[in-house]
Design a protein around this nucleic acid. Structure first.
Lengths: 232, 232
DNA sequence: CAGTGGTCTAGACCACAGC
DNA sequence: CTGTGGTCTAGACCACTGC
C-alpha cells in the first residue's frame, strides 16, 4: 500500500478545491511553500501540480503562480464508431455499391477538391439481429494503398478505411450529429413505413495538414441508436 | 526561439510513429538509451515520454519498457450546453413551469429515489431570433441552497443549477443523444406543424459518489441543432 | 542476475511578475 | 530586486521483468 507523494499532493489540493476552501481564481501556495508543507522536493511537487493541471483543476502563470481553474462544464467525451453504440452493435453489414464518381458542388466543396477529381463512394447497410438499422455512405479521395477489396470495405469503420494510408495518429476527425426525416431511399433501406426519424452522423476526416481525406453520412433508425457521452 | 529538450523528444518520437517507422506494439528505446541518444538526463526523457503517453501515443509497462499504442479511433470530444451550439445560440428563454412533483416509476428509478420523495421539475422554452427552438425539462432533487429564484432558473444551464450546491469539479455527467418524433405538446411549443423530428439530449448529473442529482431532457427542433465533435 | 520503468532528491539556471 | 514558475541535471533506491 504505497501511495506516491505526488498522489498525496494531488488528493490534498483536490480536497481543498472540492470543499470550497479554494475557489476558482484563488492562488495555490507557491511550489517552494508546498515543498516545505509536504516535505518533498520541488520536482515531486511539480509532478503533483502537473497532474492537477492535466485534469483541469488548476493552471499556472509563469512568474505569478498556480491558480484554481473554473471548471469546463460543457466538455464531454463520446466514443463513436459507425458499427457499435451503447444500445446495440452492428452484427452484419451489406455492401450495396462501390462507385467512382465525380463530386457535385457540395461534395467538392466539402472535400476541397475540383469537381473533375474522382471520388470513391461506398454505400452500405448495417444490420442488428437481422434488421437493417443504418444506411451508410462514404466519400473517399482515392489514394494508393487504399483498400478496394470488398471484404475490407464491408466491415471497416471510416477511420479504419483511411488509417491504412494515413497514419491514424495524424487523422483529425469531425462529427456532426443531427435529427432528420429520412428520404424515400433511406426509408426503403431501413424498412421504415411509419413516421420515424433518423439520427444522422456526419463524419469528416482530415490529414495532419487539415486536408479533407473523406466524408461520410450514417443514417440510423431513430429507434435504434442513442449516442452516449460523459465528462470523464 | 527556445524549444525545450522534452519537446524535441516528443516530436522525434511522434515523427517515427507517424511515419510508420514505429508501429503499434513496437518497443521504444529504453529510457537510458534515449538519455544517450538525446544527451539528456533521464528526468527530461521521462517528461517527454509522459507527454506522449498523455496524448495517447505510447504506454509503459514497468519492468519491460515503453511501447507504441494502438490509437483510439473512436474517441471524440464535444462541447455541449443546452443554450449554445455550433449553428445558433439561444438568445431568449421562457420559464414555463416550476413544480414540486412526486416522481413516476421511471423518474424515481433514474434518480434512484423513493417515489415519495419530492422532485423539482422545471420546464422552459428556448428561443433564437424570436423562434422557439427547444423545449427543456429538468428534474432536480431538492437541496438547500438550490436556486429557486425565477431569474436564476430561467437562464441557468443544468450544470450551473447544480454547481451552486455541488462542487462543479465533483459533478459527473452523462449525455444521451437521440432522434425522436415529437409528441403533441412539444410540437405545440416548438411550432411544428409538418413532419419534423426533434433531437433529444438527455442529461444526467451525479455527485462524486455517483448519486444522481438530477436529470433533464432537451428537445431541439431538428432543423435547428447539429451537435459537433472532434477528436482533439 | 541485469535491465526496465516508477519515484524522489537537492541542487542549478532561466525568463518572467511585480514592486 | 525578490519571488514565481519552467527547464534540466546527476545521481539514488525501489519493484518488476525475464533470463
Amino acid at each position: 500500500m504505497v501511495v506516491p507523494v505526488y498522489t498525496q499532493i494531488v488528493e490534498a489540493i483536490k480536497a481543498k478545491i472540492d470543499s470550497g476552501e479554494l475557489k476558482p481564481g484563488d492562488a495555490i501556495d507557491s511550489e517552494n511553500t508546498l515543498c516545505k508543507e509536504f516535505g518533498a522536493s520541488r520536482m515531486t511537487i511539480r509532478k503533483g501540480l502537473g497532474i492537477l493541471a492535466q485534469e483541469g483543476y488548476i493552471y499556472s502563470i509563469p512568474g505569478k503562480g498556480n491558480f484554481v481553474k473554473k471548471p469546463d462544464l460543457t466538455k464531454y467525451t463520446i466514443y463513436y464508431d459507425e458499427m457499435s453504440n451503447t444500445i446495440n452493435s452492428v452484427d452484419r453489414t451489406r455492401l450495396l455499391e462501390v462507385n467512382i464518381i465525380m463530386p457535385d458542388d457540395t461534395l467538392a466543396d466539402n472535400l476541397q477538391i475540383s469537381k473533375r477529381k474522382n471520388v470513391i463512394s461506398i454505400k452500405r447497410l448495417f444490420f442488428t439481429e437481422g434488421n437493417p438499422v443504418a444506411y451508410d455512405i462514404k466519400y473517399l479521395l482515392y489514394h494508393r494503398g487504399m483498400p478496394i477489396v470488398e471484404k475490407e470495405l464491408q466491415y471497416a469503420t471510416f477511420s479504419e478505411m483511411l488509417s491504412k494510408t494515413t497514419p491514424a495518429f495524424a487523422l483529425k476527425k469531425e462529427l456532426l450529429i443531427s435529427a432528420e426525416i429520412p428520404d424515400e431511399k433511406v426509408k426503403h433501406y431501413l424498412n421504415i413505413y411509419k413516421e420515424l426519424p433518423v439520427l444522422v452522423v456526419e463524419q469528416k476526416l482530415f490529414n495532419r495538414d487539415n486536408k479533407p481525406m473523406g466524408m461520410g453520412f450514417t443514417y440510423y433508425r431513430g429507434d435504434y441508436i442513442k449516442i452516449h457521452g460523459t465528462n470523464q
